[in-house]
Simulated scan of single mutants.
Amino acid sequence: MATVSDDRIVTALARFASAGALAGQTEFERAFTAVVASSGPREDACWRAFYRNSVAELRGGQAAFSPVHRRARSLLVGRSILEVGCCFGLLALQCAQDGYAVTACDICPGALHLLDDAANTLGLPIITRRGDARALPLATDSVDTVTLIHLLEHLDGPDVAVALREALRVARRRVVVAVPFEERPSAHFGHRQQLTDDDLRAWSTDLTGCTATIFTDHGGWLVLDHR
């Protein structure tokens, strides 16, 4: 339990997936939760250790995903943040530690329940909302920045445009998008698309009323600012 963390488990299970021992997203996620829950005598304590260790590794730069979260946090504007597709909410927790007013949204109620408990344990005032990226349960212009960090590769092509329009609707100032650049989509992570700079440029040309900035840093980034 002293070492259980997102980075350690993902790294280990990805090796099993590459070797064919885990097939697809469902098996990967079941194995992930089983590892966390069995890392100590009490499941609730295991998850709290998972969150404590994972956030510390991400903030300290030890996790493979640290550069992505660091860059995402550097791009936030204003004081209120919505993380769409938050999953366990590890980025949301870091943003709350930085003093932002954070709302975290995900389609999975189990992940939000875990995040609620982690935020309460860490004393961080995060609001969680169950919802779909294609129909966000927030009012227009209700937060300063909306983030979609490693989310859009989970969607089919037509749904990406819908999710981006929804993010722009909710954001007063900025939308921050990050996607992985992979040789082939990682099925165990539930990725549906192999993405490149060309995709980011194509997405941005279909959007009106905003300016787009595209760059590469541990994957691709698309930053949309309202005019």
Rank of each mutant, 00 (worst) to 15 (best):
A133P: 11
F215E: 06
R130G: 12
Q62I: 03
H188Q: 14
R8P: 01
A163S: 15
L168T: 15
A104D: 15
A135F: 10
F32K: 00
L93E: 07
A101Y: 03
S66E: 07
I81K: 02
A111D: 15
A17D: 13
V146D: 05
L91K: 04
T3W: 02
E166G: 14
A63P: 04
R8I: 02
V55D: 01
S18T: 11
Q62M: 05
E27G: 06
D144K: 01
R192D: 09
R201M: 15
G85H: 11
Y51R: 01
V4L: 00
C108S: 14
E57V: 02
R184Q: 13
T216N: 15
H218K: 13
R227F: 15
G85Y: 03
R79S: 08
P125T: 09
G20S: 00
A92K: 00
S54M: 05
A72G: 03
L91H: 03
N53C: 05
D7K: 13
Y100T: 07
N120I: 15
D7E: 15
L22M: 09
R71V: 03
R52K: 12
A37H: 04
V36Q: 00
D106F: 04
H113P: 05
A14K: 07
G78S: 08
H150S: 08
L152P: 06
Q94L: 09
C95M: 12
H191K: 15
T3F: 04
A56N: 04
D225N: 14
